[in-house]
Every structure is written in structure tokens, then in C-alpha cells.
């Protein structure tokens, strides 16, 4: 078991002929992900690297290949439309890697997706990986190892840092998921925490958060009464100045809300162990698993 993606995932890549779309489609294929189709409007009937069929629309790709997940690399001005197209075609899992989508566009997308069966992860996220089975996204595959720790975060490299600390110590991951650094996204921390709660393979959870919003607090409140596995957290941005957007569009302390201190307090109040530094997350999780 694992969550969201596994051996049965049949992946579509929207924007497969663009520079990063092509690069990361190859990265996923090399990792062993079953990439079944690509979409680039106007390039239908061509093929990607001589083996993956390209379609003009997601709807065609879905009918011909039965793809059940999509990875979006479409440029920001067109990415909201790409998400809506995937939902319209009924693709179950939509992972949007694209960074820089206007918030107003994402609000409209989110309002439409409420009545859809599709699940969106992202945008502005590194993707999802179930080690040894399926990688959808831009993370380096080799730092991961199959195991029992679930990892959830908003960021890319900070997640790699954490995963590497686990792998180097011989501890693997069930699934690692980045929900993205934008103020409005699809799947929330709470959604993922609930999935990890139901996954028997996941024995412990690492929650990497950052300043801005209150998604971490929301997850912590649920964990307090419902989640029975050990949880270790780290919140980035304790030293970030208020009112400044720290790289991620969503990483901003607005007035007195969204501070690292408030989030760490919410974690502790929920019985979650907060790692003192980003270098101690792996170690802290392993201690929890042993105790």
C-alpha cells in the first residue's frame, strides 16, 4: 500500500514537448513510472521519444490510453485551463507542477473542482512519489527508499533534505507528497494526513510546514484526536520578516497570522514532536518510531 500513486498509475504528461515537461517526463520514465501519453495541442499523432503517443487534447488521451493521472508542465498563463481540461476529461489525479499561476485563476479552478471527482495536487509543487513504484514530479528519484514513513510538505528541496536524512539512516518512505507553495491549492495537509491515517503501510508521518496560512494548524487539530501514528514536524520560516513573500507565493506572514511560532505551538498542542532544526527531522522521526 501507499497513497495516491502506485504500480497501477497510468500517467499522462500535459506539456510533454516543452523543455521541462520533456526533461521530467523522461525522469519519471527512467524511474519506472508508467507514462502512457502526452498532450501538446497541435502535435497530436506525433510521438515523444518515439514511444509515447502525443494527443491534442486530454479527452482523446484519456479515451485511447485510459490514463488515470496527469502531470502538468504547462506554462503559468495556461496552466489553470490545463487543470480544468484534465478534470473535464475525468482524470482522477491531477498533479500540477507549474509555478506562478495567478491566484484569481486558482480560485476559479478550485470552485469548479468542488463538484468534480478529480483530485488536484499543487500547483507549484514537487509532485508525489511512492518509492520503487511511481514518481510523478521533479524530485530526484534516487534519494528515496521504499519504507514506512509518510512525508508531506509544501516545498521541494526541503522535502529532499528530509527524505535524504531518512534514507541515509536506512529508513524508507511509503509516499512523499508536496502539496505546493501557493496560497490556494487543491489537496490540503489535512486531506493527505487522513489518507496516511488509513494507509497500513505508513507507520509514522513527517509534516514539513512553513509560514503563511493555517493549513498546518488545521491538520494538527485533526491529528490530535484522530491520528494514532507518531508524527514529527518542522516549520520553516521562524526568521522570516513579516509581510514579505519568501519565495513561495503562499509563504508570507500577514499581520499576526501564519507565523512559525503559532504553527509550532499548534503542533506541540496536538502532541506532535517538533524537530528543533531542519537537520534533525530524520533523527527525531526515527527516535519516535523506536520508542
Amino acid at each position: 500500500m501507499s497513497i495516491l500513486v502506485n504500480r497501477n498509475t497510468r500517467l499522462l504528461v500535459q506539456g510533454i514537448t516543452g523543455q521541462s515537461g520533456a526533461f521530467h517526463a523522461r525522469g519519471c520514465m527512467e524511474y519506472g513510472t508508467n507514462v502512457v501519453a502526452g498532450v501538446t495541442p497541435g502535435k497530436g499523432k506525433q510521438s515523444f521519444d518515439g514511444k509515447i503517443p502525443i494527443f491534442d487534447t486530454v479527452s482523446q488521451a484519456r479515451k485511447r490510453t485510459g490514463c488515470n493521472a496527469t502531470m502538468i508542465f504547462v506554462p503559468a498563463p495556461f496552466a489553470a485551463d490545463a487543470i480544468l481540461e484534465a478534470a473535464d476529461a475525468g482524470v482522477e489525479l491531477i498533479v500540477c507542477i507549474t509555478e506562478g499561476i495567478p491566484v484569481m485563476d486558482m480560485m476559479r479552478v478550485k470552485a469548479v473542482l468542488k463538484d468534480s471527482k478529480s483530485r488536484l495536487v499543487g500547483p507549484n509543487c514537487p509532485g508525489i512519489i511512492t518509492p520503487g513504484e511511481c514518481k510523478i514530479g521533479i524530485m530526484p528519484g534516487y534519494i528515496h527508499k521504499r519504507g514506512n514513513i509518510g512525508v508531506i510538505s509544501r516545498s521541494g528541496t526541503l522535502t529532499y533534505e528530509t527524505v535524504w536524512q531518512l534514507t541515509q539512516r536506512g529508513y524508507g518512505q511509503s509516499t512523499c507528497i508536496g502539496v505546493g507553495g501557493d496560497p490556494i491549492g487543491g489537496t490540503s495537509y489535512l486531506d493527505v494526513v487522513k489518507m496516511f491515517a488509513d494507509d497500513p503501510e505508513t507507520k509514522g508521518l513527517i509534516l514539513i510546514g512553513e509560514i503563511g496560512g493555517d493549513a498546518e494548524e488545521e491538520a494538527a487539530a485533526w491529528i490530535k484526536t484522530n491520528f494514532k501514528k507518531p508524527v514529527c514536524a518542522f516549520i520553516a520560516g521562524a526568521t522570516a520578516p513579516p509581510g514579505r513573500r519568501m519565495g513561495h507565493a503562499g509563504a508570507i506572514v500577514a499581520g499576526s497570522s501564519g507565523t512559525a511560532a503559532a504553527k509550532i505551538e499548534a503542533m506541540r498542542a496536538a502532541g506532535i514532536t517538533a524537530a528543533e532544526t531542519p537537520a534533525m527531522v530524520g533523527e527525531t522521526m526515527i527516535k519516535l518510531l523506536k520508542s
Binding site: S153, R154, S155, G156, T157, L158, T159, E161, G181, I208, E210, I211, F234, A236, G237, A238, T239, A240, M246, G247, H248, A251, A260, E276, T277, P278, A279
Partner: peptide, 17 residues
């Protein structure tokens, strides 16, 4: 000098720590 926003924030934090 760091790559990635989350890791950049975390690096600032650990310098302070």
C-alpha cells in the same frame, strides 16, 4: 545562497539556531 524557498527559509532558521 540556497536552492528552493523552503530550504532557503530553513537555512536561515538553522543559522539563527
Amino acid at each position: 545562497l540556497v536552492n528552493g524557498a523552503g530550504l532557503a527559509m530553513a537555512t536561515m532558521d538553522i543559522i539563527k539556531y
